[in-house]
């Protein structure tokens, strides 16, 4: 158990990811009998309340950076997660902070400003057990830019003496997209090798293989087992187009917990939820 940080470029859906985790269990009692999530502080409950308007009504989440000027204003989300395995129950506590996308993007030019440095120090502190890197794009040029950023990040990890024990879960988000959905079953080969090959090879070279895992996740999910259309439509919200659930009652997010579970415990889950 320990602290987890979520980093990733702007608009990769970091806060929505956490909002879904905080909110989803209340929503979907039937299907997730084996999983129970409990918010453990006010910040998390606030996020769960906001989640409904974000995911169902498409209210846009303001970029995290606009809320605070210093690292101390950042919310800390904390969850208790009860997982029912075959015969036993397991409780884990997750303490997660999501970072503004700017911090990730700034890494490309090397961190010079004070705020970024504070965030990175905090991210690589000894009591952080792992980082979740949430990526979502593979447009022309992004592979190059991600790999430069992660190269920087790996250097910072080594400089902070965390090379041996910091776990990195690299997650491809928004996997309900048609071209990604079939690749979710083996994300390392079918998503990262194909769409972000350079990023993957930089990570493979720089991080011990026991501390690195690739995941696929989808906050919105697809319509059903035999209906792989994304359960998501774009709507015009208060400020531009935003994604909302297409059929709320069929909402089944994919792969939200597995990376966090591994980061926190070091064990892999038998199935992806």
């Amino acid at each position: 158990m320990g602290n987890i940080r979520i980093i990733g470029p702007r608009n990769s859906g970091k806060t929505t990811y956490l909002a879904a985790l905080a909110y989803q269990p209340n929503k979907d009692k039937r299907k997730h009998k084996y999983l129970q999530v409990q918010a453990l502080n006010d910040d998390t409950r606030l996020l769960a309340d906001k989640a409904e308007s974000i995911i169902l009504q498409g209210a846009s989440l303001e970029p995290s950076i606009t809320h605070f000027r210093t690292i101390y204003d950042m919310p800390v989300y904390s969850f208790n997660i009860e997982i029912k395995h075959f015969l036993r129950k397991e409780n884990i506590m997750l303490v997660v902070r999501d970072y503004p996308g700017e911090i990730f993007d700034d890494l490309e030019n090397g961190t010079s400003n004070k705020l970024s440095k504070e965030f990175i120090d905090e991210c690589l502190a000894q009591d952080v057990s792992g980082c979740l890197i949430l990526l979502s794009e593979w447009k022309h040029g992004t592979d190059k830019s991600y790999s430069r950023i992660l190269d920087q990040f790996i250097q910072l990890i080594n400089r902070a003496d965390r090379g041996k024990d910091l776990r990195l879960a690299v997650v491809m988000g928004k996997c309900e997209r048609g071209e990604l959905w079939p690749g979710r079953l083996d994300p390392e080969i079918d998503l990262f090798d194909i769409h972000l090959p350079e990023t993957k090879s930089i990570l493979k070279r720089g991080i011990l293989h026991t501390n690195l895992h690739f995941y696929a996740s989808s906050t919105f999910g697809v319509l059903g087992r035999n209906d792989p259309r994304p359960n998501r439509i774009e709507e015009w919200g208060t400020d531009g187009r935003n994604s909302v659930l297409r059929e709320p009652e069929r909402w089944r997010p994919y792969g939200l917990l597995s990376p966090l579970y591994w980061l926190s415990t070091g064990k892999k889950m038998g199935f992806d939820i």
């Binding site: 158990m1 320990g2 602290n3 453990l40 502080n41 800390v76 904390s78 506590m93 303490v95 502190a125 000894q126 009591d127």
Partner: peptide
């Protein structure tokens, strides 16, 4: 009682060394 400390509160020596090396 703060979550970031509470997760490791049983491991006080580790926590002290991690936060105040």
């Amino acid at each position: 009682e703060q979550p970031e400390l509470w997760v490791n509160h049983h491991n006080s020596s580790f926590l002290a060394h991690a936060r105040f090396p």
